[in-house]
């Protein structure tokens, strides 16, 4: 995994959307990005902050991590397939 850039190729600002809005926005974007893309998604919905890693695991993409910000969460995901 060494040497991989964690700088996102795209930031998806889904703050203000209700569950499952942020997940749906992520899926919309990840489906059209090339393999290898790193996406950052911002969610102010706590349910989505937990749901997104669950979805990533279910569909076999790579979950990089979550960071709690002030009033929202930042999640990083890499498209690996």
């Amino acid at each position: 995994m060494g040497g991989e850039s964690l700088n996102p190729d795209e930031v998806i600002d889904a703050r203000g959307l209700y569950c499952p809005g942020p997940l749906m926005e992520l899926i919309r974007v990840i489906s059209v990005k090339p393999v290898g893309s790193v996406l950052k998604i911002l969610s102010s919905d706590e349910g989505s902050a937990k749901d997104i890693p669950a979805w990533i695991a279910k569909v076999g993409q790579q979950y990089i991590g979550t960071e709690k910000m002030d009033g929202y969460w930042e999640l990083l995901v890499k498209k690996v397939k």
Partner: peptide, 10 residues
């Protein structure tokens, strides 16, 4: 919601 999230999860 169950149906749509299941659908987008394959």
């Amino acid at each position: 919601m169950m149906a749509s999230v299941a659908s987008v999860s394959g």
